[in-house]
């Protein structure tokens, strides 16, 4: 069974008078890895947050596997779902935050087990087992009893990824997962995401790591000023961008060609 089809259709969103998303449409196939690039303030984080209804939309809709997220379509209107219905949908969509947002008063293990016990009502022993398994997957079994503050930034983000995977989501969303990390810690997090990419889960990653985008993405989407400017394969976007705005954005990241 393929799962994790994400359809974003003409999504609009304003904060006050500022229109952040000006009608964004994007379809992500099951198992596809899409990297969203764009300057800050281009609306990419907001777009990501509408996918699991952390942000309400003003128009348009998002559907995961054909089910509209956060709303029930009925008689020409989208009625916002009740809290517990939204929570149920969210448990099928993992979210990894830029600032990790681990629960500081819970151990790494408890951070992961929390949602298993209280969102999915699984027995505690089973949740613990699953949490350890996930910690193993991100290479942190021996740190299961550590509190977030006792972990490095890279380790914290790996725990956060394990936490997002706990509910076996159809889709995992990454909101600049390495932007808060020291440069030498970036690769350990990207490696975990890379592993995940080959596992067949749909991933949508907002990032500034162009190298990662080139290696791992099936498709790269470039956003600017609340619209998708251009999308294509990494080879196409990085090799031969069609739009001036894309070219201008990428040129700021091009490494000098000489090497020491």
């Amino acid at each position: 069974m393929t799962r994790g089809l994400v359809e974003i259709v003409d999504v609009r969103k304003s904060f006050g008078t500022h229109e952040v998303l000006k009608g964004v449409s994007l379809t992500v196939q099951p198992g596809e890895v899409v990297v969203v690039l764009g300057p800050s303030g281009s609306g990419k984080s907001t777009l990501l947050r509408t996918i699991n209804h952390l942000e309400r939309v003003d128009g348009g809709y998002v559907a995961v596997d054909g089910e509209v997220v956060g709303y029930r379509p009925s008689r020409g209107k989208l009625h916002e779902l009740r809290e517990h219905e939204v929570l149920k949908q969210r448990s099928e969509i993992g979210f990894v935050f830029q600032a990790f947002n681990l629960f500081p008063h819970l151990t790494a293990l408890e951070n992961i087990a929390e949602a298993l016990v209280y969102a999915q009502r699984r027995p505690k022993i089973e949740a613990r087992k699953r949490a350890l398994e996930l910690l193993g997957r991100v290479g942190l079994v021996e740190r299961s009893q550590a509190y977030p503050r006792q972990l490095s930034g890279g380790q914290q983000q790996r725990v956060a990824i394990a936490r997002a995977l706990a509910l076996d989501p159809k889709v995992v969303l990454f909101d600049e997962p390495t932007s808060a990390l020291d440069p030498e810690l970036v690769s350990e997090v990207l490696d975990v995401i890379r592993d995940l990419a080959s596992s067949g889960t749909t991933l949508i990653v907002v990032t500034h790591e162009l190298g990662f985008a080139r290696d791992v993405a099936d498709r790269v989407v470039f956003m600017d000023d609340g619209v998708i400017v251009e999308e294509g394969t990494p080879a196409q976007i990085f090799g031969a961008p069609r739009e001036d705005r894309t070219r201008a954005f990428l040129s700021r990241f091009i490494e000098p060609t000489f090497q020491i």
Partner: peptide, 14 residues
């Protein structure tokens, strides 16, 4: 921090 609530909400915790 508001991020704590968001993280819990994103995990589907009631």
């Amino acid at each position: 921090d508001h991020g704590q609530l968001e993280a819990a909400a994103a995990l589907g915790i009631p």
